[in-house]
Design a protein around this nucleic acid. Structure first.
Lengths: 131, 131
DNA sequence: AAAGGATATAACCAACTCGTTATGAAACAA
DNA sequence: TTGTTTCATAACGAGTTGGTTATATCCTTT
């Protein structure tokens, strides 16, 4: 386990990251960015809040390391940064034995089953339907 | 108390869950509980904060669905609930393509490489991209 | 140079968070 | 009963958050 400035837990960055993820608007922004980079205006469009509010959300996401920002003319295209999400995944890994058996979304489960099936597909004929 | 009805994102519970995880003391509590159930007093012991503060952290964790509490005499043993962590994992799954390639912990990476190697063991094409 | 579009910053406010101390309530033990 | 242990709740203050409107900044276009 790591020991940073904090007495008990991991780096302080996780604080900011989890806090950033705690807001639905920000998660929605991430969902938008998962489909491709976007400018502030594009990001702001679907939301019922002001542009400054979005700008601040973006700053929070950036401070959390969840996004990065480029610069094209007067636009500042935002890009989803997988690295920080990875840290969250890594953190969760410590608890795998707890959530692994928990029944989560069904499709997740099916996904795993399918992945397993794909590997051994050489033998018999599977039926599985999609959706 | 709270109101549902968010336009964009998933259930509101994720808000509470991520918010709960944003605090290092609470993550440390979870880490403690990962080693086994514990009473409030036991949990509070290592922390430099008052017992009421711990009680409130536990309430936050409970509201987030991350822990549950039993009742034994005057003790209220706390138990880590994997189900809610699973929801976080499920949420992260949507971003897998982003964090999967990100270099996180090395062992994680190796784990994946090994799994991948097992799958493609028969086909021998592929020029590698390095790094 | 002047105008305009895209974004950031400032100032402000209501609501929430996290800590504190003091006290209350429930279960046990004498 | 009386006291003790374990935990929760109330009340308060400082700091943070998330929204607003107004304004400043930067870059492009005319």
């Amino acid at each position: 386990m790591k020991q940073a400035g904090y007495a008990y837990d991991e780096p302080e960055r996780l604080d900011a990251t989890f806090a950033a993820l705690a807001d639905p608007t920000r998660r929605a922004i991430l969902a938008r960015l998962a489909q491709g980079d976007a400018t502030v205006k594009e990001i702001a469009a679907p939301f019922p809040v002001s542009q400054p509010a979005i700008s601040r959300h973006l700053k929070v996401l950036e401070n959390a390391g969840l996004i990065s920002r480029g610069r094209v003319a007067q636009r500042r295209p935002c890009h989803l940064e997988g690295r920080q999400l990875r840290l969250v995944v890594d953190w969760l890994e410590n608890y795998r034995s707890y959530w692994a058996e928990a029944y989560g979304h069904l499709d997740e489960l099916l996904d795993e089953l399918q992945a397993g099936a794909a590997v051994r597909q050489s033998s018999a004929g599977r039926e599985g339907q999609g959706t």
